[in-house]
Write a protein that binds this DNA or RNA. Structure first.
Lengths: 224, 224
DNA sequence: ACCTGAACACCGTTCAAGT
DNA sequence: ACCTGAACACCGTTCAAGT
């Protein structure tokens, strides 16, 4: 069947789930989570608010679909790696970066089988652990630890970003937290006094990776 | 100064931040996150909706305060332990259990110095790592990994609970996910086919603990 | 089958007015 | 200083009516 796209600039194609998710991501990224309303989305898509419900169940499903899309984009950026440890690190960093760039991605991810990109991510980590030779008895726990660490900690990191005004100075925020720790009683909070010195200027991303490396290192030990 | 509490059953004491947070937690626990509105809260406290704003900045601050309270209750349940590894495990499980019992606790936690219980938690984990003898050079990364794993993964776990109807059968949900994994193409998703067998009936809590143990085991290795 | 947009049943937050 | 509650400016979602 031949399909000819109209020569004239059509104002918009037919509505579709994909186009809705595209528009939602654009609003989320440029104007933030609070700006994503069905009315704003409908305006951007030149349609009525109710039309969206023909394609997507509700706002929760919309956010889940948008998050899954971001996961997919992150996975696409990860090349194949010969060393399974490197593969796990690369996937972890890719998701971390994606979550930082789109701070609204976070708790909306679930094991929902509709989230096809999430499923691909789960498989990739599992496959890397198989390639790494983690024995079957430990494999499921190790997989759960990796996957949950990546999603949980990256999500946690994004949550911090979410609770800040978008123009917040990261260094200033960290310095303020360090300052507040320094003002605690040093005898009851000795560690936080020590940590306060490390807080400003530390690299979230490297710290995130250090955690992954601890888990990978733990895999080499027989569990106590 | 002597204070005599009135003999008669006063309908309510003066409004206070603590009483507001108490009432909010009760609504969150019994009726869920969506039921927590300033109107419902005001009704329960026999006051006007606007009165709450005299004590708490906005809804975000309310949720943060409620979450911090839950962290405090969890910490209170952890006794002192001679072995720092046990202390870390005990703290991890206490927070995990608290997050499961109050699925609305999650992303609202931050490094905000107003969250005093959170600060106590951060100190306790750090102190345990000092007691464990983790050298200064690794200490900050190790602390970050532990703290972020616990908050992130426990929060992730609670997020799953949140996205389920409160009466959902956990086993049935896991079986459904396993079933959906089994229907994927086995040649592109070999790991998930294997994992599907482990999914129903697995213990989230033990898996969470296994991740903590991997991190603790990793601390014994020199980083690669 | 798909879209429209008014209508419904709510929200968080503010603020003049009270005590 | 603290509380009241109406008012404002929104929401997500539904649904009769259109094409």
């Amino acid at each position: 069947m031949t399909r000819i796209t109209p020569a004239s600039d059509r104002r918009s194609d037919a509505l579709s789930r994909d186009r809705i998710v595209d528009a939602a991501i654009e609003i989320l990224d440029t104007q933030g989570e609070r700006a994503l309303t069905f009315r704003a989305l409908a305006t951007r898509l030149s349609t009525g608010a109710g039309a969206i419900y023909w394609h997507i169940a509700d706002k929760e499903a919309l956010l889940a679909a948008a998050s899954d899309r971001i996961v997919g984009l992150a996975l696409a950026r990860v090349g194949t790696m010969p060393d399974p440890r490197d593969a796990i690190r690369a996937h972890a960093l890719a998701l971390f970066d994606a979550f930082e760039a789109h701070a609204w991605v976070g708790t909306s991810l679930s094991l929902d089988p509709l989230q096809t990109e999430m499923v691909r991510f789960l498989e990739r980590i599992g496959g890397s652990l198989v390639a790494l030779g983690v024995p079957l008895a430990q494999r499921f726990d190790a997989w759960s630890a990796c996957v949950n660490y990546i999603l949980g900690v990256a999500g946690q990191s994004a949550a911090h970003a979410r609770h800040q005004p978008p123009d917040a100075n990261r260094d200033a925020t960290l310095r303020a937290v360090a300052e507040s720790w320094n003002q605690l009683d040093p005898s009851t909070y000795p560690f936080l006094h020590e940590a306060a010195a490390y807080l400003p200027g530390h690299d979230d991303r490297l710290q995130f990776l250090a955690g992954i490396n601890l888990i990978l290192a733990g895999l080499n030990q027989t569990p106590s």
